[in-house]
Simulated assay, not measured.
Amino acid sequence: MKRFLILLVSVFMMLQGNRLLAESNGGYAGAFMRLGLGARHLALGNSSVAAPVDAFSFYYNPALSAFHEKRMFTLSHRFMSLDRRFDFIGFASKIPPGAGFSLGWIHSGVGDIQGYNMIGEQTGTIDHNLNAIYFNFARVFAGKFAVGLTIKHMREDLNFGADSYNASGWGWDFGAAYRFNQKLTVAASLRDVGSKLTANTEKLFEFGGTTVFTFPKIWSVGATYLTPLPWLRVNYAFVGTEHENGQHLGLEATYRNILALRFGYNKDQLTFGAGMGFKLWKFFTTLDYAFVPSVVDEGASHVFSWQFYLN
């Protein structure tokens, strides 16, 4: 009974936490993987299915990695309310003469949740962790058309004292992009194909078994356009799932490679951010910031990303 109550309360908190984490489809499995990734792309309203490539591009469209011109190492941290965590570390590189790849690790979770039994006694703390590891490869053909694939492994862990619950699974992302020229690119992606978490509760319950949590598939189409004003770029994406869909728009104004101001429309939210580029030791780096407003009064998020261009 104690194990059942702790697990029931914990799963409820997990679902509530995922609802707060996710900007859409929050009541379904894998919400932490639908937040968006990278301060630049979040500031642009998650409109980056065709955006110029960086170390976060594989998340929005696996095909974009084919356009890598440099090696990049990146870190990202999202300051969130309610003691939640969301971090990313990644590496991306070109593979001459016409390919590229990306590696990445997302970690999300919340810890030190106080647990109680049915008579109000403290039973210790509960920790909830979610992890996803990505591998992405993309190839360009004729210098214009690119296709890409991302394989990802996900794992969820819920620890409460001597007991624990865990689930794991795999998923696939596919993408395509066509670069007409340096100003215009159109693209499409299909994410979370077959993505699911499979849990076995036989060690927790006498009549435990196997449960499968399936992620909603996400499809995106969009474009990026460098306007006649050479300092202004516009992104557009239409993103949908079997449960809902919405439009995403991003505007990015840049001054050389030094400063950038960004504004976005993320379905029904307005986002904004900024970035700056500078040289650190022998590397050129970019430091980006994004403000993401509250979804359901849980508090706004502040996202920082730092990219290092290695050559």
Rank of each mutant, 00 (worst) to 15 (best):
D54A: 00
A55P: 13
A55C: 10
F56Q: 04
S57P: 01
S57N: 02
S57Y: 00
S57A: 01
Y59I: 02
Y59C: 05
Y60T: 03
P62C: 03
L64R: 02
L64F: 01
A66P: 10
F67L: 04
F67Y: 06
K70S: 14
K70Q: 15
F73V: 08
F73A: 13
L75A: 08
L75R: 11
S76R: 12
H77C: 12
R78L: 13
F79D: 14
M80E: 15
L82D: 15
L82T: 06
L82R: 09
R84V: 04
R85K: 13
R85S: 15
F86T: 04
F86P: 12
F86H: 08
F88A: 05
F88P: 10
G90L: 06
S93A: 10
K94R: 09
I95G: 05
P96N: 09
P97V: 11
G98V: 09
G98S: 13
A99I: 02
G100Y: 01
G100H: 00
G100W: 01
S102Q: 06
G104F: 05
G104K: 00
W105G: 12
W105C: 14
I106N: 12
I106C: 14
H107V: 10
G109F: 05
V110S: 09
V110K: 07
G111A: 07
D112T: 04
